[in-house]
Design a protein around this nucleic acid. Sequence first.
DNA 1: ACCTGAACACCGTTCAAGT
DNA 2: ACCTGAACACCGTTCAAGT
Lengths: 189, 189
Amino acid sequence: MATVNSYTRIMPTPDRTSLPAIVDAACSLLESEGLPGLTMQAVADRVGVRAPSLYKRVQGRDELLRLVAEATLTALGSRLGGSETVSELAKGFREFGHERPVAFQLVMTPGAGSPVARDEFGAVASEPTLRIAASLAGEEHALDAARMLTAWATGFVSMELNGNFRLGGDVEEAWEFGVTRLAAALAAR
Amino acid sequence: MATVNSYTRIMPTPDRTSLPAIVDAACSLLESEGLPGLTMQAVADRVGVRAPSLYKRVQGRDELLRLVAEATLTALGSRLGGSETVSELAKGFREFGHERPVAFQLVMTPGAGSPVARDEFGAVASEPTLRIAASLAGEEHALDAARMLTAWATGFVSMELNGNFRLGGDVEEAWEFGVTRLAAALAAR
DNA sequence: ACCTGAACACCGTTCAAGT
DNA sequence: ACCTGAACACCGTTCAAGT
């Protein structure tokens, strides 16, 4: 039958998965199983194909990790987008870290060897911070101020997530102390 | 011959390596090959035994990583010990990160799944920071101030090492900006 | 008592063969 | 054109067998 024939010629095997499905599965696995649990095998199982099939859509695990990092940066950027004050911005940043600790660390403090997101994704994620830094410290100090703010918040949340606050005291209070003093420091002239 | 007999009974095979030698080799490999390059095989090669022999001295790769992290914290603590000002302390911290980037990140921003140094090693490393924070912000704010300082410095150096300052500008200036404003912020009352 | 070869389970990745 | 089984190199780890 001609119909079957041309059909099989045009579409010998229908797609059984897609790149977005693969990245979604990887994001989900990353958070539920941790970075070591994000294996090609596990991703393949999630999307319903065999591991070698993934290589039709991604070059390898490193590229997949990069795509996960970029998706995370996009989510972070839109999460911070509506912020209007430093404390609001910092709070959203911290909450994001608590909600998606593994992805947060993959993006903000990846170990050596991990892939780096392409520039445009980092730029989008840092736009809200730059905007608020500028309004606080002035345009001429916007970049320095944004870097100070991001560095502090990244370090704080990272230490929190890694359980590095082990000398007692109130971590919540330490956060408030930091936000308050930082806002004052950035506004200083 | 009785001599040979008792000798072989007491010391059937002489030790061909030691725990310090293994940890040293691991520290060196970590920095030269990166975390993925720190394999049991590579460590075994360095110290001149086969990989299975390492398990006579360490429980596994995770414990070895923990010992490396603890050795790094000890080195960091003695490096910062002599500091007398915030900028001096911060500078030493940053230099340490530049000299041993992989070990620095293993200790300060390990990914999930990596082992955590035992409390006493973290306490020793943070003592100099606590001391200077207290002198600046007063005893009642020492812990909060130390956490603010450590978070900022950790985040800054981590972002530097990961190439996360990609919006142009002068990174050196951003560091100076941060140290200056931070010192002022901590001293504020 | 320490060391080793052999083995196991599990990775990422490649590729020829299927449809 | 996509998918798969089989294979390869390389991990961490275990263990019986050597000395």
